[in-house]
Write a protein that binds this DNA or RNA. Structure first.
Lengths: 124, 124
DNA sequence: GTACTCAGTATCCAATAGATACCGTCGATG
DNA sequence: CATCGACGGTATCTATTGGATACTGAGTAC
């Protein structure tokens, strides 16, 4: 992998975007919506462990960026659908590359951590 | 982009890894080290805005995961080199995919945000 | 009028990030 | 001999964010 000389400068230029993606829940939400729109409660179930407050916050931020759309249906009980935009669907490919890397190396990383922690324990 | 039926479950399995990558500074550090090892102070300069505390924390976490190595030279003044491992270098490709996406869409995202915020202002 | 669904808020507390100041080693300098 | 400076960090404190839990409001079904 070769980077042109100004690669890092350009990385900085897009830091504002990376900050958004580099969020604990963003990737999970985008992947959850890969197969089509979901309602708020469906996202909540699919993404185990997220609280409604944080889900709302993250969804609003993604809507703001144009990664997904939020559609309110005038019904009772209320219904709100979240769906990836083209921009969001474009994001699936790079996210998938990260996911593949993570899956391929997850086991190795876990053992690395264990070894590191053991070594640290020895020093005490 | 097609996902197999259990794609999301597997994404969850690697969440522990994603949590590490999905950190504000990790991506920047890995990219900074793409061209070869750097010293602590060099990283500090290259990654504008990072405080020494957070840089130390993030570097230690990445060392723990085996993404980079930390080499202390017995010199005065001290010298410590940080260098990507093979695992870390493998990570460059997927990170690059994200970076490319970010660069391609950064301008669009910024205008999306402006439009969203304007619309929100209208409502007040 | 009571209960229920759904999509969120409100409130409060804990964990994390960030700013700033400081430390220890030791060789070079005066 | 005192002191200055380089380097790679810690220590301490505060601000921001994340998380747990409880609650709300509209309306329809009972």
């Amino acid at each position: 992998m070769d980077y042109p000389p100004d690669a890092f400068a350009r990385a900085c230029a897009s830091r504002v975007v990376l900050d958004r993606i580099g969020d604990r829940w963003t990737v999970l939400i985008v992947v959850a919506l890969a197969d089509g729109p979901l309602r708020f409660s469906q996202l909540r179930e699919k993404i185990e462990g997220i609280t409604p407050k944080v889900l709302t916050q993250t969804l609003r931020a993604l809507e703001r960026d144009g990664v997904l759309t939020r559609t309110v249906f005038a019904q009772v009980p209320p219904r709100v659908d979240y769906e990836l935009t083209e921009l969001g669907r474009d994001l699936l490919a790079p996210i998938d590359a990260i996911r593949v890397w993570a899956e391929q190396h997850a086991a190795r990383i876990v053992t690395n951590r264990e070894r590191y922690d053991e070594a640290a324990d020895q020093l005490l």
